[in-house]
Amino acid sequence: MFRQTASDKAFQVVNTVFLILILGMVLYPLIFVLSASVSEPEFLLKGDVWLLPKGFTLDSYRRVFRNQDILRGYTNTIKYTVLGTGINVLMTIAAAYPLSRKDFYGRNLITGMFVFTMFFSGGLIPRFLLVRDLGLYNSMWALILPGAVSVWNITIMRTFFQTSVPYEIQEAAMIDGCSNLKILSNIVLPLSVPIITVMIMYYSVGHWNAYFNALIYLTDRAKYPLQVILREILIQDNMGEMASFVDEGIIRQMMLAEGLKYAVVVVANLPVLMIYPIIQKHFTKGMMVGGLKG
């Protein structure tokens, strides 16, 4: 329609180069981890691996999947994620639906009560003492109940209910004598599948990646989620049973341990990265809804 001027063309080129640089910067570490995890540890330690794998081997993965700590951490994390997310989503709906209704008396007061907690909190110590007094210490409920619902997600969901589920339909159902709960389950929720999907994703990624509550509330190793095990391996350099490759020399052991870390990173993120391409559309949509000031 309009002729592109020279300066616009130059801008377009600069912009594209800029974004390609960004792409490279974001992708390089991810590709490197993947390559390193399937490379022969020897090349890795000599600094011969730059981008593509060298001396292809799946040995590190074999060791990771034989590791009892990781397997148990995996199972625990799956359990906490499924249970925690279920509770999160139910609580979010239970809060968001009443607050989305104009005829719900007290909604401003209740919203205020929720939102205030985003800006002020009693802090770590009182919360810790509370969890202990409730008898949740060293129980998986300490990972689930303290974060049972997020104010931000309630706001997103409430905004969705208000903007995407026509109030007229709900009103009509009321006139037909439908109870509020019936309206919620038969009319509102079926129309809200996209936002519920987004919520499931938000919360489950949060549970999958959480380590802090486990760090402060769990003492029993058998209950540790994956992230706590990962911390031991990646950051505290504590390889546990994995480091004792009995039949190997000390240098070789060190090498294997290093290669193993990369495989551990990949294995830990596998579920999230595998579903990511499928769900990223929904994620973005949820962010957009949340971005609207509600």
Partner: peptide
């Protein structure tokens, strides 16, 4: 691509 690292855990990023 730029959204992807958001889904990595803090433990993994620091690792």
């Amino acid at each position: 691509v730029t959204y992807a690292p958001h889904f990595l855990s803090t433990v993994v990023v620091v690792g």
